[in-house]
Design a protein around this nucleic acid. Sequence first.
RNA 1: GGCUCCAUCGUCUAACGGUUAGGACAGAGGCUUCUCAAGCCUUUAAUCGGAGUUCGAUUCUCCGUGGAGUCACCA
Length: 491
Amino acid sequence: MTTVRTRLAPSPTGMMHIGTLRTALFDYFLAKQNGGKFIIRIEDTDRERLVPGAVENLLEMFEAVNITHDEGPFLCDDGTIEERGDFGPYVQSDRLDLYKKYADELVEKGFAYPCFCSSERLDEMRKAQIAIKHTTKYDRKCLSLTAEESEQKIQECEANGDTYVIRMKVPEGSTTFDDAIRGTITFDHQEVDDCILLKSDGYPTYFLAVVVDDHLMNITHVLRGEEWVSSTPKSIILFNMFGWGVPIFAHLPLILSPDKKKLSKRTGDTAVEIYFKHGYLAEALVNFIGTLGFNPSGDREIFTIDELVESFDLSKVNSGGAVLNMEKLDWMNKQYLMALSMEDVTLRATPFVAAEITDVVKRALFIERSRVSQLTEFDEALKPYLSLQAYEPSILVWKKADVADAVTQLERMVTFMETLDDTAFSAVDLLESAIKEYITHEGLQNGNVLWPLRVALSGQEKSATPFETLWVLGKETSLDRLQSAIAALKK
RNA sequence: GGCUCCAUCGUCUAACGGUUAGGACAGAGGCUUCUCAAGCCUUUAAUCGGAGUUCGAUUCUCCGUGGAGUCACCA
């Protein structure tokens, strides 16, 4: 039995795309589930669209999301990139000789041919084809050249600095393949263009490079977005021309924006990085994106990455596109946030918090984690704890009480709190039971006591419970705030 | 426009050809409660249409319709 080998083959043309993350996740699930390998290969054959730092961003995102690949480029601590694995190089621009060699092989075998047409001629040709409503494809002008004529033209090109390309000679017939997600798909070769294999700058196009590399790297499963379906016959034709085995193809459903179109920068957040900047947790993002188009069944929503690895099943991946439901991501993020320990929430929130991380801040973060849905909201949520915000004294009065009662309750609370020692302040539960006991003992109503207490402590009508707030603030600060509330009411 | 793919609540989705078509997010209502959040309960909401196969179609087939993807020296 052959080892499962999946690969993610992104082109470094910008920030890592959310769709790329989903493909990566599925690649990872499939490989890990089968004890296989997950490989990253950088497809940088388009020199014009190259974006510096794109590879670094990709690898950083992998780190952030806690997914590790087995082969490919890795980010070192010093920021440099190093390759690991036995099938390298893993960057296509380092494999140029290979593609040239295989392109030549195809020309020799008569499966490919040089083309000298100018881009101007090609443009006009296409315009004419569109005018008569035909499929736009190369008209094979250069295929009619004899071997001698081709050779002569190549000589001429080399002599005067002109360029030419190598095109695939698509045979007659049709290609049928079994998509692991979609089932049988057939394309008539009438529809398949004699696409360019080797560009005039010596770089291969995607069509050639992907086939050569997937073969040389022993890739068993090709997972990619649905937008690639129509180019699959080209790949298969090439695999056949070389006499190589064809990997299993699985075309993933597209991730859609709310208008049901392929998610683009214009219609939504496409960069994975943005989601981290917005304050989503990696676990939530993985859970959310990893179950988009795939569901492990059962009435569950929250899954760890290991559970997803275990239950993943290519044949259960949906074929329809999926709209990003941001409200659900928010909800999911909150689920993960609420499960965080004090240490963890501090760790995660620190980059989003302007204030110094003191014990008060740590406690406040811990309490507020169930009241925010994104890490970015912490900064704002922290404010009432860091300093008392100005408020209207009238809000200190509970709806079923009056000013006089509020003053009385606050004054009595001050007296009571002074009897509480450090132990009482060490836990929310202890504070709660102490105060509840006091209320019962004194024959008071919760609302009369707790409302003014809570508002005096937080300065806000809506906030965490008074017990939580006391625990965060500590005895001294709490007493100060109670005193200023009393003073404000008496004014 | 050609080709290809797709089609269950608004959204994400579940349902060996046999279910009162299930769950989740969002919405509505309620409980709990000092407020908010959380939690719990209830509720609104879907098989695109038409034929066929079958004792029985969400499920299989065909035809429509709708949507999407793709048609570069980009991937």
